[in-house]
Structure formats: structure tokens, C-alpha cells
Design a protein around this nucleic acid. Structure first.
Length: 563
DNA sequence: AGTTTCGGCGCC
DNA sequence: AAAGGGCGCCGAAACT
């Protein structure tokens, strides 16, 4: 029998606990108990814990080996509800929600702390807030009503549950860490960069490449200074606007080759070199702090260490413990499959109903078998390509898959006009014009006051302001990327449940890719669990559609061997 | 001297 | 060939 229980961390150490009825209201007395972990452990019948913040409570439970089935994260819910109600950017703390409910002054959210390299203080000293259980219950009841008042209550409730599950998974990943062999990492660095010189300067290979660049220009040039490089090319009679790689590659000059090589290695050196290793790897684990729901689209971010940008060459250092394996699973063409599911385009759903390469199938139908063209067209539709061949390819795509393209076009138009745009489960893209504070923090382009009045009421291609068009691209991508994130959360939740019965641990998640660390004998079970979780997540998120969500999985000892 | 922005590139 | 979405991170440059 599923049971819900609310829990609040009390002043002076203990917790307040109250069982909840099916209606979400207290079904018994509020109990005060001295120990958080003991309170949870002594209630194995509880399948969902309602609490203020998973980031506050889950680490404390994990530290004592207590696992919960599910939770309801009140502050995550508040963020989702505010966004859904078009109030993006209002404070989302439980205290703020309570103040809005009671009509008092609304406290601002506490500032975000960033992770300290090495110390990882925010992981082990989560912020503690004491709000009486009676207050939490009042906010919870109101949040339930707000879910009910939404246009699609069952979807929004699922989203809140999925986000809460994501918070649990993130807390568990933060504790587990990604297996990391510092010795292998050092070998990779030495192979790529050469010896380090005393004094902390550039390693040998970078110094050599800098010399080659200077020699090619006939004077001392610092390849890590874009301004210096642009000037040097200018003096050599080569016009170049920036030093971006794709721009340099088209140039005919002897400095180009060593320059590009320098920039590639320089990047490794500064972002994932010896000092990174020193800062972020402890006791054989890399612990980026995963933040579920860290972006407006619902994608996760990591706080510190660039956890979601591990360069391919550095993945050599991610090695399973002895006798264990890494199950590396990557969703195949996730975004077009999601587009098929949310648009219900019959043609695209049929294509996405097969496990075989989706881009190949699209190209067979609309691009005479030219897979590259098909992929460009699909990505152009999802990302908002505005020029070049992409536009021509988009027209071909529109003819064959009209509903799919119309879906993202509608989202783009809504974004340009400043209307709300939602993912399938109801995560909401912040509007730009006339929005509450917060949209700028989200990086959304604002309209210039100057052209605010110039925008036509009817959406006409080419007549929107530059910023409005940028918002259109943002909204276009939001519905696909965000709905994919909805699905991925449910995938994680299902996979977490299976792993609970095994030694297997989720250790990494990157948008459409997941890594499970498990004993060798569990690997095949995990592979099957990922496949099952993907299909279950597809059904739960999008309802009944023919769309499949296949994964490419690899059972490896080293992450670099997965692809 | 300390803080913010920019350029460039890593990942999806 | 050139370009569209989401991020984080670094050093340098540009500020206060």
C-alpha cells in the first residue's frame, strides 16, 4: 500500500514527521523525533516522502545508508509551478511560497553557492532551513491545488514527480562519483602534452607548437591570445575576423596547422590538465556536483569540474573498479524521436517506430537516401537554422513531415510573440517581453525597447527583430530539448528503481547518455534494464505512440572504449 | 585589486 | 560551406 509521509527538519536537530492521507492532508499526529535517518528507516512502508529540499535531506540519508523509494521536492515543485503559471523568476523557496500563501513579504532566494574545488563543501554541508511542518503542509496542499488548476494536471504532476526523482538520482550520483584513474589521466596528459616544466609554464608540446606558430609568422606570436593572432595574420596579408577553428581551417598559411593543434591541446591543458586533476579527483572518484533541473529546458548541469564536458580523449581515465564494469548507454537520435512523439506527425512517428537509424529512414523518404542532408534538415528544424542549405532541406522535410515541422514552427512563433511555450509534461519556457525578473539570468534575449513597437501583430518571417528571432529559435529548440529532458528524467527514475535491487550504481548522466557502474555479473541485467526503462519512460511521458527509444549500450571497463 | 565580460572550445 | 539550440570553464581583456 503506497503511503505518503511529510518530513521537516526541526530546529535543534530533530525532525517532524506526519503521515499523509490519500488526499494529501495529514492523516495522523505530527511526531517529533530526534534523528532524521532513524525516522525514515523506521517507516519502510512509506513510498513517497514529502519534503522541502532533496538537496538538503538526501545527502544526510545517504550518509547513513538509508534509501527512499520516492520523494516530492517542494522547492522543485514551486519552480515548476511558478514557471507554468507564467511567473518565472519569482523566489521559489518554501519560505517564499509560504509568504505568498499568507500574504506576507516574500523573501528572496538565497544566492547560489558554487562548488569549491577539492573541498566540495556544498556536497557535505547542505544548507539547512527550519520551516515548521505545519507550514510545509500548507504549502504542499496549495501546490496540489495549483497542479489541479493547470491545463494538464496529470502531466504536471508527473513532471513534478520526475523532477523530484531526478533530484534523488543527482544526490546519489554526487555521493557515488565517477570512477577515475588519476594515473591513467596523467599518462594521457603526458602523451598529448609532453613533460611539464618547473614553474608551472606550458608543457613541452605546447611550447614547441607556439614556436612553430611564431616561426611561421616570422615573429613572436602568442597563440593563446586571439587579438595577437588576428593581428599577425593581418600583417601577413591574410584577412581573418576571429580565430575560430572553422574560420582558420579555410586559410592557406603555414601557421594554421600548428595553431589549430595548439588550441586543441591548450584547451585540454587549461580545462582538464594536471591542476584539474588535483582539484577534482579524490580517492579514485571524480565528483562533479550534478544539479537536476539546472537549466530552463530541464537539462542538468554540473557545478564545478566541467562534469558534462569531459573531452573524449580524457575519458580514457574513467575506468571501472576491478571486477566491475561500466555500462555506457546512449539514446539513438533522441531529439527527432521526441519530436515525433510530441508532434504526433504520422510519417515521423512511423520512422521513429523503428529502432534502425532514423536519419537514414528520413533520408530514404525525403532526401533520396542522402543521410547527411536528412540529418542537417532535422537538426535545422530543431535548432532553427535560418540560412544556407539548411533552409532548402527544411522545405523538403516540411513536405514529408508537415506536422512535425509545424510543431516547432508554432513554438518559434509563440516565442517570438512572447507567449509561453511548454514541454510535453509542462515545463515552461520563460517569456521575454514584459516578464518578471529572471529571464535575463536565464540568458534569454530581450527585446530592444527601440523596436518593441515595430513588431507586427501577425507573425511574418523576416519582420521580427533580431532578439525576437533569437527567442523564436530558443522556443523552437525548447519544446524538443525540454521534452527530451522530461523523458530522460523518467528514464532515470525507472533505472534507479531497478538498480536499487543490485549493487549497480548510476554514476553519470549527460542529457541522452547514462553510465552505470556495476559488478561484471550484473552488466547484462543492467543493459536490459536500460532498454526497459527507455520504453517505459516513452509510454509514461508521451502516452501511447509507436515511437521507440532505442539505446546503444556498451559494457566496458573504460569509458573511452564505449564508442 | 577585485569583478564582470569576452573569446574560444569542450560536451550534448 | 556555414550555421541554428542548451550548457561550463578558462585566461585575458575590459570594467569599476
Amino acid at each position: 500500500m503506497a503511503e505518503r509521509c511529510a518530513l521537516a527538519v526541526a530546529e535543534g536537530g530533530g525532525v517532524e514527521v506526519a503521515a499523509l492521507g490519500a488526499d494529501g492532508l495529514p492523516a495522523g499526529p505530527v511526531r517529533r523525533e530526534p534523528d532524521l535517518a532513524a525516522a525514515v528507516r523506521s517507516r519502510p512502508e512509506v513510498t513517497r516522502w514529502v519534503w522541502r529540499s532533496t538537496a538538503e535531506i538526501a545527502p544526510r540519508l545517504l550518509a547513513t545508508g538509508v534509501r527512499v523509494e520516492r520523494c516530492y521536492d517542494m522547492e522543485a515543485a514551486e519552480t515548476l509551478l511558478l514557471g507554468h503559471e507564467g511567473r518565472y523568476g519569482e523566489p521559489h523557496s518554501a519560505a517564499a511560497a509560504l509568504a505568498r500563501l499568507r500574504g506576507g513579504p516574500v523573501p528572496p532566494d538565497p544566492p547560489q553557492r558554487s562548488a569549491e574545488p577539492g573541498a566540495q563543501s556544498s556536497l557535505f554541508e547542505p544548507e539547512t532551513v527550519h520551516l515548521p511542518l505545519s507550514d510545509l503542509l500548507a504549502v504542499y496542499a496549495e501546490q496540489q491545488r495549483r497542479h489541479d488548476r493547470s491545463a494538464q494536471p496529470e502531466r504536471l504532476r508527473l513532471l513534478t514527480a520526475a523532477e523530484s526523482a531526478g533530484m534523488l538520482v543527482a544526490a546519489e550520483m554526487n555521493r557515488a562519483g565517477l570512477p577515475w584513474r588519476a594515473d591513467v589521466h596523467r599518462e594521457v596528459l603526458h602523451d598529448l602534452l609532453g613533460e611539464r616544466y618547473a614553474g608551472g609554464g606550458e608543457p613541452r608540446r605546447l611550447a614547441e607548437l607556439a614556436e612553430e606558430v611564431s616561426a611561421a609568422f616570422g615573429r613572436r606570436v602568442r597563440p593563446d591570445l586571439p587579438a595577437d593572432v588576428v593581428k599577425a595574420f593581418g600583417q601577413a596579408g591574410v584577412k581573418v575576423r576571429s580565430t575560430r577553428r572553422w574560420e582558420l581551417e579555410s586559410l592557406d598559411h603555414p601557421a594554421v596547422k600548428p595553431l589549430i593543434e595548439y588550441k586543441k591541446l591548450y584547451r585540454i591543458w587549461v580545462a582538464h590538465g594536471w591542476s584539474w586533476l588535483q582539484d577534482w579527483v579524490r580517492d579514485g572518484r571524480f565528483r562533479p556536483e550534478f544539479l537536476a533541473g539546472g537549466t530552463v529546458t530541464g537539462r542538468w548541469v554540473t557545478n564545478g569540474g566541467g562534469g558534462l564536458q569531459i573531452p573524449k580523449v580524457i575519458r580514457r581515465a574513467v575506468v571501472a573498479d576491478p571486477g566491475w564494469r561500466l555500462v555506457v548507454a546512449d539514446a539513438d537520435q533522441m531529439e527527432p524521436r521526441v519530436l515525433a512523439a510530441i508532434s504526433r506527425d504520422p510519417g515521423l512517428m512511423e520512422v521513429a517506430g523503428r529502432e534502425s537509424d532514423l536519419y537514414q529512414s528520413v533520408s530514404d523518404r525525403a532526401f533520396s537516401g542522402d543521410r547527411a542532408k536528412a540529418k542537417l534538415a532535422v537538426l535545422g528544424a530543431v535548432y532553427g537554422q535560418t540560412s544556407g542549405d539548411g533552409l532548402k532541406n527544411l522545405a523538403a522535410l516540411r513536405r514529408r513531415f508537415p506536422r512535425a515541422v509545424a510543431y516547432v514552427d508554432d513554438a518559434a512563433r509563440a516565442g517570438e510573440e512572447g507567449r509561453l511555450v511548454r514541454t510535453w509534461l509542462g515545463r515552461t519556457c520563460p517569456p521575454a517581453a514584459g516578464a518578471a525578473d529572471g529571464t535575463e539570468e536565464a540568458g534569454l534575449p530581450q527585446d530592444d525597447p527601440a523596436d518593441a513597437g515595430d513588431r507586427p501583430q501577425e507573425w511574418v518571417p523576416g519582420y521580427a527583430s533580431t532578439n525576437a528571432r533569437a527567442r523564436g529559435r530558443f522556443a523552437r529548440n525548447f519544446v524538443v530539448q525540454g521534452s527530451a529532458a522530461d523523458w530522460a528524467l523518467l528514464l532515470l527514475a525507472a533505472l534507479r528503481r531497478t538498480c536499487a535491487d543490485m549493487a549497480a550504481e548510476l554514476v553519470f548522466f549527460q542529457h541522452d547518455e547514462v553510465i552505470v557502474h556495476c559488478p561484471e555479473e550484473e552488466a547484462e541485467t543492467v543493459v536490459a534494464a536500460i532498454r526497459d526503462a527507455a520504453e517505459l519512460a516513452g509510454r509514461l511521458t508521451f502516452g501511447t505512440t509507436p515511437v521507440r527509444f532505442p539505446f546503444t549500450t556498451a559494457v566496458v571497463e573504460c569509458y573511452a572504449d564505449a564508442k
